[in-house]
Simulated scan of single mutants.
Amino acid sequence: MITCSTLSSELTEPLAATAATATTWLLIEQSGPWGAKALAESHLDPAVGRALDTACAGTGVRAALIRRPGRHPDAGPDGHHEVIVAHTAPGRSWVRRHRVADPAELLAVDFAALGAGEHGGLGTAHPGGPIALVCTNGRRDRCCALLGRPLAAELAAAGHGEVWEVTHLGGHRFSPTMLVLPYGYAYGRLTGTSAKEVLAATATGRTVPEWSRGRSCWERPGQAAEQAVRLLTGETGAEALTLTQQPAGEGRWSVTVRHTDGRTWEVEVAQTPSEPARPESCGKPVGNPARMDVLNVR
């Protein structure tokens, strides 16, 4: 069976600069089945899901549903919903935990402030340790279910207590994909071994560039530039690099990457279509997904 993930792997499509963008993640526990557009297609009240999606628009906050690995009967939620809120900007990363009886309570939150990194005392601070979010939504793409659910189950069975299935991380063709908090790095084409390596590195404040799709707080040109500097220098400190980017015209960007030790790099990035054509996701028509190519680092 040819899937979007096997085809992407065969074409050696780069992982870099493919992470979904969000400065802050709002993750809401919701048991039961998920539809392709899970916020409005699950046991969560569809009106609440649509309202949360609307509230996030333009704020930098990205909402998704989560659940513990394992079987999920077609039944409504029982009791309270766990809520994880995480801001992922370098030097200002934080994770907060909260519980709500009704997810509609979250509509009272200041989403613009959340996106800017101000939690306003919501919940309590996460006690520490990485949180793994593995995309498993087969209604969105079959690769996520076929590859993501076994990975989430393996990590949970290995004793990684903070493992969650999540509805959507983008980039189905890079399955199995995982987002790791608190830093917000996305990873792709993972195995059980490489995923455990990523979690061990995250626990010590490091990232693993080999499997990295990028840090979600950056737009895609910035993700490409950061990855290029990491590969050039061997830097793995998760909080070591910051950046600013500006358009340079004709699908190009100029990105300044700064190290905490004072070093800087100027990176030129261009958007180009992937060749040959391939589907971005199983069931989607064949196309040429945009990719970010690093033209120069100085």
Results as ranks from 00 to 15, higher is better:
186 A>Q: 15
131 I>D: 02
36 A>N: 11
113 A>K: 07
294 V>A: 11
171 G>C: 03
138 G>C: 04
42 S>I: 05
239 E>L: 10
270 A>V: 13
150 P>R: 00
194 S>F: 01
247 P>Q: 08
168 H>K: 09
55 A>V: 11
271 Q>F: 15
263 R>M: 05
25 W>C: 11
135 C>L: 04
214 G>I: 06
62 R>L: 13
69 P>Q: 00
87 H>Q: 05
127 P>Y: 00
27 L>C: 08
60 G>P: 06
188 G>I: 03
86 A>H: 01
175 S>G: 12
37 K>D: 15
1 M>E: 12
263 R>Q: 11
49 G>W: 10
170 G>Q: 04
47 A>Q: 13
84 I>E: 04
262 G>A: 02
28 I>K: 04
195 A>R: 02
128 G>L: 04
172 H>P: 09
16 A>T: 13
153 A>Q: 14
262 G>F: 00
124 T>H: 13
108 A>E: 13
152 A>H: 02
73 P>D: 01
40 A>F: 03
79 G>S: 02
131 I>T: 11
288 N>A: 15
109 V>T: 15
62 R>W: 10
271 Q>K: 13
40 A>R: 14
23 T>P: 09
37 K>A: 14
288 N>G: 11
286 V>K: 06
107 L>I: 09
170 G>T: 05
49 G>S: 09
151 L>F: 00
48 V>S: 04
90 P>C: 06
153 A>H: 10
62 R>H: 13
196 K>Y: 00
69 P>F: 00
137 N>K: 00
129 G>A: 04
28 I>S: 03
206 R>K: 12
286 V>M: 10
256 T>I: 12
298 R>G: 15
141 D>S: 05
196 K>A: 15
16 A>P: 03
175 S>C: 05
258 R>A: 14
65 L>Y: 05
38 A>G: 03
81 H>A: 09
189 R>T: 06
74 D>W: 07
158 A>L: 07
286 V>E: 15
151 L>C: 08
80 H>E: 15
282 C>I: 01
191 T>Y: 05
216 S>P: 11
281 S>L: 14
78 D>I: 14
219 E>V: 13
19 A>D: 04
15 L>F: 02
38 A>M: 05
198 V>D: 06
145 A>G: 12
237 G>N: 08
142 R>Q: 14
121 G>D: 04
69 P>C: 01
103 P>V: 03
11 L>M: 11
183 Y>L: 10
89 A>G: 13
209 P>A: 07
63 A>G: 06
126 H>G: 07
119 H>D: 15
256 T>W: 04
21 T>M: 12
73 P>H: 00
5 S>N: 08
124 T>Y: 06
90 P>W: 04
205 G>F: 08
284 K>I: 01
67 R>Q: 12
180 V>W: 01
45 D>V: 09
149 R>I: 00
112 A>Y: 03
201 A>L: 10
9 S>Y: 03
150 P>H: 00
69 P>H: 01
15 L>K: 02
